[in-house]
Computed example of a mutant assay.
Amino acid sequence: MSDRLRHALRQQADACAGLGSPFMAQLCTLLAERLEPDTALTRRLFDWPGDLTSNAASVSLRLAGALHALVLQGHAGLAAVYPPNACDDDTLWQAVHAALASDAAFIDGFIDSAPQTNEVRRSAVLIATGHWLAARYPLPLVFSELGASAGLNLNWDRFALDLGTTTLGPTDPALTLTPDWRGPHPAPSTVRVTERAGVDLNPIDLTDPAQRLRLLAYLWPDQPHRKALTEAAIAASPPRPAKADAIDWLEPRLTPRPGQLHLIWSTIAWQYFPAAVQARGTALIAAAGATATPDAPLAWLSYEADGQSLGAGLTLRLWPGDQTIDLGRADFHGRWVDWRAP
């Protein structure tokens, strides 16, 4: 059993290194090498049922998130060894090992729930897609986000995308995104939004300090720019997502909307839906697409892992006509976008 946890921690360390977080790589490597099943808490971690990796339970991120939450609450021992401070492996492990003992009850409760992030930088793809669609259909948009977490990306039309020679978005944005952009620049268009709504099985209530802490705890400690963007997005007062099954919630929203374009999307969320839910959702959206008209088009954007080694695939299905358009690929955290839209 111990090998499963150590494997998951090493796998997470490699992923964090690839996503630009040397601290998280260091932390997960130390946990893989030095954690032992010698307390009630650590025995729970080692004996966790099922798949422990980031493909399922994400036990490594649950534990790392719990430790970061302690730092954000002012834990002196951990704060001394967490970024922006740097320390050697032995010093970091001494502080982490002490916290695992002294704060076991808090950590045990924190890891009950799966990790939940709301990566604002993914809005770069939403902004580009929205402007591409607005150029094709000069209609106001209705938003439906599946797996919306805290709803931060439901405000993407209030953010700016700086592409160097082109900027998409308002002149007074709530925040500005600057991904490494490859490929053509979408033309700036007028984006109008008449309704924005999202759904999540466990939406984050940003008015609840504990839930807000949880959201921030899953932003990696050596990436303060992510925290700054998240806090700017929170300040933009996003709508609170509904708490429901995504497809149950979406079904009544699929009625054609004359004079409006309905944009449905998910960003690294669809992949976690059970297969039966995915199949039902795909069938319902396709059926709604079959009733779409040029005056009431339907668009479905997928920003999801697709088995390829580099980033996530960006696919747009568009009705009427049921066109499938390859928009390119993007980093899981939105650090880069390889845009291929026609």
Rank of each mutant, 00 (worst) to 15 (best):
M1W: 06
L5Y: 09
R6M: 03
A8I: 11
Q11D: 15
Q12H: 13
A17E: 14
Q26Y: 02
L27W: 09
T29E: 10
T29W: 00
L31E: 10
R34I: 07
A40D: 15
L41P: 08
R43V: 12
R43C: 14
R44P: 08
R44T: 13
D51I: 04
N55P: 00
A56K: 04
A57I: 02
A57M: 06
A57N: 13
S58E: 05
S60T: 06
L63R: 01
A64G: 14
A64L: 11
A69M: 04
V71F: 09
G74S: 12
H75V: 04
A79N: 09
A80E: 15
V96N: 06
S102C: 11
A105L: 10
F106E: 06
I111V: 15
R121F: 03
R122L: 08
V125A: 12
L126S: 03
L126P: 01
W132Y: 15
A134T: 04
R136C: 01
L141G: 00
F143L: 14
E145N: 07
E145A: 12
G147C: 01
A150R: 04
G151V: 02
L152V: 04
N153H: 02
N153W: 04
A160F: 12
L161H: 04
L161F: 06
L163H: 09
G164Y: 11
G164C: 09
T165E: 15
G169P: 11
G169R: 09
A174E: 01
A174I: 00
L175F: 08
D180Q: 15
V191F: 02
E195C: 08
P203G: 13
L206W: 08
A210P: 10
R214D: 05
A217P: 11
Y218I: 11
Q223L: 15
K227A: 14
A228T: 14
A228S: 10
A235T: 03
P238V: 09
P238Y: 01
P238I: 09
R240L: 13
P241H: 02
K243I: 06
A246K: 00
D248H: 12
D248Q: 10
P252F: 01
T255C: 07
L263Y: 12
W265M: 05
S266E: 01
T267Y: 07
W270A: 06
Q278W: 03
T282Y: 12
T282S: 13
A283P: 00
I285F: 06
A287T: 12
G289M: 07
A290N: 14
T291K: 15
D295N: 11
P297H: 02
P297S: 03
A299G: 10
L301C: 05
A312L: 11
L314W: 05
T315S: 10
T315V: 13
G321H: 04
D322R: 11
Q323C: 06
T324I: 11
L327T: 02
R329A: 13
R329L: 01
A330R: 03
A330W: 03
D331N: 13
H333M: 03
V337P: 01
